[in-house]
Each structure stands twice: as structure tokens, then as C-alpha cells.
Amino acid sequence: MSPLLPAIQALSGHVSLLLLGAGLLLWFWGTWPLLEGGSYLGRLHKLSVSDTLGSALMLLGLLLRIPGQWPLLALALLGLIVWNTIFGYVLASCSLPPPHEPPRERTAPHRSDRSR
């Protein structure tokens, strides 16, 4: 068992670098369209790729590096995914002009369920 341990550690170091690099690539790919033109919603789609998924990959890479701190890293991962996704939804639905349907009833799931 003991000769396997350094090998596992070296492997986890390499995998963590790989995850961090992949997250960085997603960051660049998803943030670059902000500089270009194009539809606002399309840019939001790509920003969700970079900020949610890329950052989650980076957090996984950090988790391989410091496994002793897993509770806080798990909390950060959960918070990152939930908050960024909900913020993308709020930005998309708020940036649109209001829907021109005759019954103006706002049944959208507003923040009433954020009380958890």
C-alpha cells in the first residue's frame, strides 16, 4: 500500500493541474464573446459556461490539492453553481421587455423560495 501512495499523490497533482487548465480555457472561451457583438442572450449562454462550469472545474482541481478542506470547498461549489445559475436567469428575464400578454400576472418564481 505504501509504495502506491506517492504515485497516487503525483497523479492527483497532474489531474488537478489538468482540471485547473480546463477551467481556465472555459473562462477564456466564455468571457471573450462579451467583447464582441451578437445577441445579449447568446452572450449570457456563453457566460454561464465560463462562470459556472469553468469555475466549478477549477474548484474541483483545488479540491484535489487540499482535500482536508473539503467542507468549505463543497459549500463554495454549491453556492457557486446555485447563485450563478439563478443570477443568469434573473439577468435574462429582467433584460427582456415585459411580455405583452393581456393578463399581466407575474407568476414568475421570484425570490420567495430563496428563504431556505
Binding site: L41, L44, H45, K46, S48, V49, T52, L53, I81, V82, T85, I86, G88, Y89, A92, S93, L96, P99, E101, P103, E105, T107, A108, P109, S112, D113
Partner: peptide
């Protein structure tokens, strides 16, 4: 149904998390 707020929240989360789709709102 919009009365199940927690279910709606989780569904919006699942749809918006995937990069192909983005929820714009809930209407009737």
C-alpha cells in the same frame, strides 16, 4: 404548477444550468 415553489425553483435551476437553454420566465 406554480404553487409548488421549490419544484419550480429546481426546474429553473436545471434548465438554466445547461448551456443550451435559458429560462426567460414563467407564463400561462
Amino acid at each position: 404548477a406554480p404553487s409548488q415553489r421549490l419544484v419550480i425553483f429546481l426546474e429553473v435551476l436545471a434548465i438554466t444550468l445547461t448551456p443550451f437553454t435559458l429560462v426567460l420566465g414563467l407564463s400561462r
